[in-house]
Amino acid sequence: MLVDVKAMAEIARDLFAVKVHRELGAAGAQTLRELITRVRETHDALTTERIVKGLTVVRTLGTGAVEADMAPAVFTQTRELTAWYRQEAGPLSVHFGNDGTIRAWCTEIDTSAITGQYVCYRYTGPQKEQILTPTGVHGVPTIANFPSYFAVPYFLDLRESLVRYGNISVRSAQCDIFRATWREPARLVFVNKPEATMRRSLQQYLRASLRDHGPIQVMPEQNVNETKPVDIKVTWTASNRVALIEIKWLGLSHDATKQTKTPYAAGRARQGAKQLAAYLDSYHTHDPDTEARGYLVVFDGRRKSVAPESTSVNHADGFHYAMAEIDYPQDLLARHDFEAPVRFFCEPECE
């Protein structure tokens, strides 16, 4: 869904302008405009996935201030919040002062701690946003499938694209590129080392499906650390968002020339999850100003009672693993930068 977030912010400004002007006068209306600009900047710096504990943005009039119990961290650029904020520390509160100084706390600032007049923004969860003034609470409009009225859902759109790719291109091998991963039309056994072809198929689909977000790079085999490159790296060049996609396949591959076979079970996917977590840790260390999120994509071609010499399979054996979801370590799934793995069950042609 293509939505101009800047235009939406201007609509929100106009929507609240009359109410704020009535309460705080022309100075309040101007402060509202400044607040909404700062809200957009904050959402550009931090994903909604990282601010699940809440976000408060304050803009005060005149000599107003925030008198919190703890000392703030002080910055001059909004983007500095990306590397500084830690979700586990608590909700994020930010005061943009009239002197250009940005003060931030890992706690929710109550409006009673704000001295003087102010206009405040509060995000408490997807589609739960308010504009606050000393005497008013105003709800922010919602946009279907958008967590925030002021943020572009880059990662949400990526996950939706992955799900569509699995349903359209992979399930029954409708993608010409992906079809080449199968040894035979019945789709029982993968060819030897099918991952490069899987990567090329997914890369092509993402390049086409994510174009609405403007300049985007979808690059294969990008180095993240010294051990092994991540399969696909998606970069939204107009933002600080990066997605690291690791691909794993399950099932049986067969090299007819060398008469070798490679069977991969669920443990292969769990290994991929740990590998992806290591990539993310390395990426955060070397590029802390980037919002990186990891995606594990599993091509599941497992069949029951299928061997390299098999040429057909009955429905029960072919679809034995169709609903066999994979258990992953809970500490990985709980990470703020780790998307729930996506499993594509690759359906066979049965007898």
Rank of each mutant, 00 (worst) to 15 (best):
L46C: 11
S169Y: 00
I36D: 12
G166Y: 00
Q174D: 14
Q77H: 11
A45G: 08
T63S: 09
D4W: 04
T181M: 03
R50P: 01
D327S: 13
E339G: 00
T107N: 00
V163N: 04
F178C: 01
I177H: 01
P194F: 01
R293Q: 10
H336P: 01
V94S: 11
A151L: 07
K53L: 13
V137Q: 14
G116N: 06
R270M: 05
P185Q: 09
I51H: 01
L332A: 06
T290M: 07
R40F: 08
G62I: 12
D176M: 10
T235V: 13
T107G: 05
G54K: 02
Q204S: 09
T76D: 10
V218F: 00
D317Y: 09
F75Q: 10
G54M: 04
S93V: 08
A113R: 03
T124D: 09
A65Y: 03
L276K: 10
V163C: 02
T257G: 06
R40E: 15
I143Y: 09
R335Q: 13
V170L: 02
M323Q: 10
V18L: 12
E49D: 13
P341Y: 07
A307I: 15
G136N: 11
R86C: 09
P91Y: 12
K304W: 15
S201W: 04
K274A: 12
P72I: 14
T142N: 05
I102C: 06
T235H: 02
A26D: 13
P134F: 06
Y123K: 00
A273G: 05
T56A: 12
V191S: 07
R50S: 14
F178E: 08
F178D: 04
W236F: 14
I245A: 03
I131W: 10
E80K: 13
T124I: 07
A265S: 09
D327I: 04
A27F: 04
R164N: 02
T260L: 15
I11T: 09
L332S: 07
I216Y: 00
T63K: 08
R103W: 03
R207N: 11
V189D: 03
D287P: 01
T124K: 03
T56P: 04
I11D: 10
R187L: 06
R199C: 04
F299T: 00
S148F: 03
Y328N: 05
Y283A: 13
S239Q: 11
N223W: 00
Q77F: 06
Q275A: 07
T135A: 15
L2G: 06
A334Q: 05
D289I: 02
Y321I: 05
M219N: 11
L81A: 08
Y118R: 09
K19N: 08
T82V: 15
Y123V: 08
T37R: 14
A65V: 05
I131V: 15
S310N: 09
E349S: 05
D157I: 03
R303A: 10
R50H: 08
V189E: 03
H315T: 13
C346A: 13
F190E: 01
R211L: 11
K274V: 02
R183A: 15
R79H: 09
G136R: 12
K233S: 10
V137L: 14
M219T: 14
Q130E: 14
A89Y: 09
Q130Y: 04
S209I: 05
R38I: 06
V163H: 05
H213Y: 10
V57R: 07
S161A: 15
Q87A: 11
